[in-house]
Design a protein around this nucleic acid. Structure first.
Length: 298
DNA sequence: AATGTATTCAACCGCATAGTT
DNA sequence: AAACTATGCGGTTGAATACAT
């Protein structure tokens, strides 16, 4: 996490003049110039897509710090990022969140993932809650990669063994598969999904991944030591703590190293144009303790 | 060194569900 | 109760990067 922040601030300073940001800057310019007078509600401008720039990141961090991790549509609109709320949330959750753990999945984590996947199927967000600092997306990607590798390994193993068997005895109805890869086979595939189907809401898709879970399932089922349901959820203490961390990141100069960003405005904050009465925005739900707290903090 | 291939990961999409009006 | 909105989730895609030839 610290690493993430460091990386971020590093790349941020590096990218201040990167060509990658020109497009964004241009867009920002267009936006701000168009708002000389009270702009009428914008006619749903095309939303920005694709990779986020460091400036966008910084801006998002700032606004999340200000408004909290909710009301993403509102936040997206007010921040002027030109992104959908969905996109903002995703960026925050999967990349900007200071509590995120970077780096490869460790062996322990892998074991846990295998175990939990056997238990819950591809309910990635649920699995992710048991892996502090890991996102569902990350785990999902990891699993896919892992599955592909296993598939490749199984394929090569089976082809090797089939070569061997064809030289000795013909056929035996295919399915060869290596001894330790239970099946790679269709029939077994159905049984293998037992672990998956067993989970309350079975995963919808059954693709290559699912076929490859067999091994994991059987392995995990074999030992299945009781798993503490959750040691750490993304939305309680961990999550909340990190808001503070996010704040400190910003304060520590994540944004241009100013060191006093908590009260300063973001580099470009169309919120001031979008709504000249900033505080009135807050009054919308003034009764919201969370909002008040955030305001106070800011 | 150049090119092709494989792998990784960030981001998008569509759908489901919860919450609000 | 119905309609609408916001949020969250899982699946999928494509660009960037790493690795092999």
């Amino acid at each position: 996490m610290a690493a993430a922040a460091t990386t971020m601030s590093m790349s941020m300073s590096m990218s201040m003049c990167s060509s990658r940001n020109k497009h964004y800057k241009q867009q920002a310019g267009e936006r701000s110039s168009s708002g000389s007078n009270k702009p009428p509600p914008p006619p749903a401008p095309a939303m920005r897509k694709g990779p986020w720039t460091e400036e966008e990141d910084a801006q998002l961090v700032w606004f999340v710090r200000l408004f909290g991790e909710r009301r993403w549509d509102f936040l997206a609109k007010v921040s002027g990022l030109g992104r959908t709320g969905k996109s903002c949330r995703l960026r925050w959750v999967n990349y900007l969140h200071p509590g995120l753990r970077r780096g490869r999945i460790t062996a322990d984590e892998e074991r846990l993932i295998v175990e939990l996947h056997a238990k819950w199927g591809s309910r990635w967000s649920r699995i992710a809650r048991s892996l502090p600092g890991r996102t569902d997306n990350e785990i999902k990607n990891f699993w896919r990669t892992r599955a592909r590798k296993q598939k490749a390994a199984a394929a090569s193993a089976s082809s090797a063994s089939s070569l061997a068997t064809t030289s000795c005895s013909a056929s035996s109805g295919g399915s060869g598969g290596s001894p330790q890869t239970p099946s790679s086979g269709r029939g077994a595939g159905t049984t293998s999904s037992s672990a998956v189907t067993e989970s309350s809401s079975a995963p919808r898709g059954h693709d290559e991944d699912a076929e490859l879970v067999d091994e994991a399932h059987t392995a995990a089922a074999g030992q299945s030591h009781p798993q503490q349901e959750c040691c750490y959820t993304m939305d309680d203490q961990f999550w909340n703590d990190d808001i503070t961390a996010a704040a400190s990141y910003v304060v520590d100069g994540g944004w241009g190293g100013a060191g006093h960003i908590a009260t300063a405005a973001p580099p470009w904050s169309p919120v001031w144009e979008y709504c000249s009465d900033y505080y009135s925005l807050w009054r919308i739900d003034d009764d919201d303790d969370y909002s008040k707290k955030m305001l106070d903090d800011a």
